[in-house]
């Protein structure tokens, strides 16, 4: 697999038209209209409980929407779609499977030939930096390595859409930073449409080409911010004045709401 061939990887457009979600009487979000372009990283931030993770699950087809529709490449999503992979905050690894078996899980389900699995699994295990740990079980790995495994499992499917559900929230701060830059590097090798949900404003601005801010109760899209920071993003991005500017902007936007919510409680 050469780098050029990978750069031609599939990528899909996602349209979210007037989408709303209810749990019984509780309206989580409503009237969400978004369009994610091909080979774009869109991050979604919002206060906890705003339904950003729920929205991501709707895009994956794990949860049905109550209003509106979500389309990927024109197809209305009613169930998980081929070419869409998700990385979970809870890792979702199977403790009785080795790293190799966990990474090959999706391919095996898709009925991929043995030779293909034997070729792709080691490639992606290596890509996420787990070489040498193929036969380890998840409990033998640190949180960061477990999420590398979760990432490899998603990448092995060579998806056109990668959905990231607060993937680094359960990982310690240093590892988190390392993983962020490694993910960006992997994405540059094979750019796909990536929707990245996070509660970290810093992470949202660092990773996203655009940042979607969800706000309100029920929540809806408050603002979509173009992050005009130079590519490639790396550690130096964090020191860029424009980075600080955008981060502060998002912070102020969200803090109004967090404060309001706090007063509401008092």
């Amino acid at each position: 697999m050469s780098a050029e061939a990978e750069a031609d990887g599939q990528s899909s457009r996602i349209e979210i038209n007037g989408v709303g979600k209810r749990y019984g009487d509780l309206q989580v979000f409503k009237d969400i209209n978004l369009e994610f372009r091909e080979r774009e990283i869109v991050t979604i931030v919002g206060p906890s409980g705003c339904g950003k993770t729920t929205l991501l699950r709707c895009i994956d087809g794990l949860l049905p929407v109550n209003e509106g529709e979500i389309r990927i490449e024109g197809d209305v999503i009613t169930q998980p779609r081929e070419g869409v992979s998700m990385v979970f905050q809870h890792f979702g690894l199977f403790p009785w499977k080795t790293v190799r078996q966990n990474v090959g899980y999706g391919l095996k389900l898709a009925g991929a030939p043995r030779a293909e699995i034997a070729e792709k699994v080691p490639y992606y295990v290596d890509l996420v930096g787990l070489k040498g740990f193929e036969d380890a079980y998840p409990y033998q790995l640190s949180g960061g390595m477990q999420q590398r495994c979760g990432l490899a499992r998603a990448l092995t499917m060579e998806p056109s859409v990668l959905l990231m559900d607060e993937p680094f929230a359960a990982v310690d701060a240093q590892t988190r930073e390392i993983l962020q830059f490694e993910l960006l590097k992997i994405w540059r090798m094979r750019p796909m449409t990536m929707v990245f949900v996070t509660h970290s404003i810093e992470e949202a601005v660092l990773m996203g080409d655009r940042v979607v801010v969800l706000k309100g109760r029920p929540s809806s899209v408050f603002e979509v911010i173009d992050v005009d920071l130079p590519a490639p993003r790396d550690r130096s991005t964090l020191a860029h004045p424009r980075f600080t500017e955008i981060r502060e902007h998002v912070w102020t936007t969200l803090m109004d709401e967090v404060r309001a919510a706090e007063y509401e409680l008092n």
């Binding site: 794990l62 992979s85 998700m86 979970f88 809870h90 979702g92 199977f94 009785w96 499977k97 389900l109």
Partner: peptide, 25 residues
Amino acid sequence: PEMLEVAKSFRSSEFAIWTDILIPY
């Protein structure tokens, strides 16, 4: 439920849910 969610996300069949998750668990 997280494991079943992963299975659903990776488009697992009911049979594979048994062999990959329910039985070993």
